[in-house]
Write a protein that binds this DNA or RNA. Sequence first.
DNA 1: TTGTAGGCGTTATCAA
DNA 2: TTGATAACGCCTACAA
Lengths: 335, 335
Amino acid sequence: MTTVQRPTLEAVARRAGVSRATVSRVVNGSTTVAEPIREAVRLAVAELGYVPNLAARSLVTQRTDSIALVLPEEATRVFSDDQVFPSIIRGVAQELEAADKQLVLMLAGSPAGHARVERYTTGRHVDGVVFASLHGADPLPAKLARLGIPVVCSGRLVGDVGVPYVDVDHVGGVTRAVRHLLDSGRRRIATIAGPQDMFAGVERLTGYREAVAAAGLPERVAFGDFTRESGAAAMRQLLDAHPDLDAVFAASDLMAHAAMRTLREAGRRVPDDVAMIGFDDIETAAYTDPPLTTVRQPILELGREAARQLLRMAAGEDVAPALVLPTELVVRASA
Amino acid sequence: MTTVQRPTLEAVARRAGVSRATVSRVVNGSTTVAEPIREAVRLAVAELGYVPNLAARSLVTQRTDSIALVLPEEATRVFSDDQVFPSIIRGVAQELEAADKQLVLMLAGSPAGHARVERYTTGRHVDGVVFASLHGADPLPAKLARLGIPVVCSGRLVGDVGVPYVDVDHVGGVTRAVRHLLDSGRRRIATIAGPQDMFAGVERLTGYREAVAAAGLPERVAFGDFTRESGAAAMRQLLDAHPDLDAVFAASDLMAHAAMRTLREAGRRVPDDVAMIGFDDIETAAYTDPPLTTVRQPILELGREAARQLLRMAAGEDVAPALVLPTELVVRASA
DNA sequence: TTGTAGGCGTTATCAA
DNA sequence: TTGATAACGCCTACAA
């Protein structure tokens, strides 16, 4: 490849008949440069097509003005019709946009990808990192924090690792959901739980367990991983094990959606025979048949808060170790 | 923020009692270092928690081992339930994964975002750039190419700018779709066209126009922007202007989906009264009611090819100026 | 207001 | 095989 030799500050300086320092000042918008000189430099920059080398700059400034959002997931998963990731991304993007920082999105589904992300982030390619959807006890956030790199997790980590996080009130939302089912007379309430290597999965199950226990009812649990397919499978398991169930709380809307379909295929009417409540309030929840009653979590806001916290940290400010946003029960027709 | 002072090569060298050069060799896996020394260096690296500074490295190597995928779209749009972008992302991600390059995803919906992306890419933060979903005559690809930065566009640009691209055979696919409608006896065939500032939008309309003209039929056109809402609106327009239509080719599955719903609301049966064909073959196309007949485009493959081309360019090889992948008519129940 | 000069942390070219 | 030493391109005291 015949990489065009790119002009440097030095070249621009020669062209404009000034020193490197002056060019640097003009390029970076310093006001202490006389107008004629400034103009001459601008001209030289334009003529030569000069573009600053960011590596050189960040080597000395110790900043890159870009922030990474790391999703330790396969691309397939991130961009499914689950709108959770997209919303987080949008939220983060909005805040960074306002701060004029570049968002760098990194997927890390595979071990190799994870290693690459580690190299990239620890190598100071970014000024800070937002993690979302962490599984298990991923050591990377803590590692980065130890290296002095600002880190915020969107969604609390399993096991407290001392990294600031933002999350939503899972238990509160689930509690309201189960109470709603109880209020409408349901007594044989099952749950389709989420993956237990994620905090959201654990918490939503905890919420369910506590709520049914408080009502003196037995628990009926099947597990999924937040996806549609897993929801359908879990629903079939529940029907097999507890054919008499009259309500289901699913830990994600996708699972709830698939479960409703499975119920219909099994000849059960929703909500007449079995009530269904989901979690997330994704866009399609309003368009399912019947429209899905669900626990809304402010995902966009979660992303925005995560980004805000990170920007504060990067600016050297202290931030709260935890920020928990409220959830809300949205009652539609399915329960 | 108490940014921990990070150890440098120098520090490791002192600790291990060798020179910087030797540490560099060990870190980069050179084989010309004696085993005991290698071991001592490894120990020092571990003890100090040394991580190479990527900015310093790329300043001298002129490489970053990362590739940008730029989507000049709002995050909202990119992550809608349209699976087109996600598939491109996945395709690119797969190839880069195999090449052990870091994927850096950048959204650039706003003008400010666009400017940021320009700074970032021209500033040599990445070794190459894949563009997808370009609107109008975006000058950035050509600009990067002039700077000697490898660029590939996924989806051809409006107006030939001399940047290598990969795309699918829009016209061929649409032609087969219209022919299918003709073969099944439809004669009053309308189209919901895509945005005319995108090559895909233009080409699919061209394909429709040529096909109906070749059959001696008049054209009936309404415009959308590939989204559901725009599809519904366009369908209403078409029904108003041409209440006798008996078939519609929509330039995207999302528009086709919404149009079918609109038709049903207007009392038309699909396909009995009006046949519908979409474009894309997104996942939900198989689950619409009725299942959607559509033109499948190999989007994942498109992303992979784009990435492959880029990697070749970055490696200094020559690549074909254009690569066009075939499309295919998938016949389901809607037409 | 402008220029000089040193240094940011690596890699790479030489000698040794 | 190892070690000086010179870039890489930029910013920024400090001096003029």
